[in-house]
């Protein structure tokens, strides 16, 4: 049986209490929400916090308000709650859809929105037992010095594998963080950092409280996920697309890829190509190519990297085509 290392487990009832506990516990402490990311990592000895502070008992994190002009999702909502929330499925279907594609129904009952947005980057040289990692002399993300995906590289190339994060970046959602200095808002894109180790800009003691979503006022969005199986698997490619239409013309667009870099990667060139267009086939093909060209998946997930790169073209095309169809049907 794979087991957790010993640690002290704290269950604060409020954000303030959690922050105090974190401060007292010092750097070798970790927050945990659903545990579906942290506990496997602890069992594989990626993380060995002395103190684990559970956020599950904090009611403030479970808030949800979708009726207002500033819709808000609490970070403590389970992925099942996000995926099945009836109104969200209408107003922000891309978010509900992405949450519903995470892992399995069992895991979604435990894993939280905040957990998925803060998901540790993944790499199949890293998500391995201590013994396995020892046999390759470890990697720089944990216990070693080299990134085996790109041994000459000074950085870690572990992959952002969240399904919901690319959608949040595409929607330009605002994350609400609370730390010792109080609350701050961070645009989703600014929450992530292109580095496999330092992949979040969040300070360790800060708690992700929730996400402010754009009000549903005419824009459309969708998320497509590529993986081997229909359950369990992390994305080897996620395509999140946000579109604002002005009549038949695209007024604003953001295409963001998951699973291909250490952060949800905005495809700026591809996005700009479609702004001002009617999203005809040529434009879609050009945008798909513009997303394909700079994408450099590394050999550290399921599937070969050439195929994954090729699939960015296919999946961006599919997403844009689907959004066009929706718009024309609407």
């Amino acid at each position: 049986m794979l087991r957790l290392p010993a640690f002290e487990y704290l269950q604060p009832a409020s954000i303030d209490e959690a922050l105090r506990m974190k401060q007292n516990a010092g750097p070798r402490s970790q927050y945990v929400a659903g545990g579906t990311d942290l506990y496997p990592n602890m069992k594989r000895r990626h993380e060995e916090p002395k103190t684990v502070i559970a956020l599950g008992g904090i009611d403030e994190l479970g808030q949800i308000s979708l009726e207002s002009d500033a819709p808000f999702l609490g970070a403590g909502l389970t992925l099942t709650e996000v995926a099945t929330q009836p109104r969200l499925r209408t107003t922000h279907s891309a978010i509900a859809g992405a949450a519903g594609l995470v892992s399995t129904p069992l895991l979604r009952n435990m894993g939280t929105l905040g957990g998925n947005l803060c998901l540790d980057t993944r790499c199949n040289y890293y998500n391995q037992s201590y013994e396995w990692r020892k046999s390759i002399d470890f990697c720089m993300k944990k216990d070693g010095t080299v990134c085996w995906v790109a041994p000459s590289s000074p950085r870690c190339w572990a992959v952002s594998s969240s399904d919901v994060a690319p959608v949040m970046v595409a929607l330009d959602a605002q994350y609400t963080l609370v730390g010792a200095d109080g609350e701050r808002q961070v645009p989703a894109a600014g929450f992530y950092h292109d580095d496999g180790i330092e992949f979040l800009t969040k300070r360790p003691e800060e708690i992700l409280v929730g996400v402010k979503l754009p009000a549903p006022n005419g824009w459309d969005a969708m998320y497509l996920k590529l993986r081997r199986r229909g359950a369990f698997d992390f994305p080897v490619l996620g395509v999140a697309v946000y579109l604002e239409w002005n009549e038949s013309e695209v007024q604003d667009a953001r295409i963001v890829l998951g699973g291909v870099a250490s952060y949800p990667k905005p495809m700026t060139d591809a996005s700009q190509l479609i702004v001002g267009s009617t999203l005809d086939d040529d434009v879609i093909a050009a945008a798909a190519h513009a997303a394909f060209k700079p994408t450099k998946p590394m050999d550290n997930t399921d599937f070969g990297l050439a195929w994954r790169k090729e699939m960015t073209r296919i999946y961006v095309k599919r997403a844009l085509t689907e959004l066009r169809t929706r718009h024309r049907d609407a």
């Binding site: 199949n124 998500n127 199986r229 229909g230 359950a231 369990f232 399921d302």
Partner: peptide, 10 residues
């Protein structure tokens, strides 16, 4: 996770 045994969906 990475040894791909088909799920109900496959």
């Amino acid at each position: 996770l990475e040894y791909k045994s088909p799920t109900t969906l496959e």
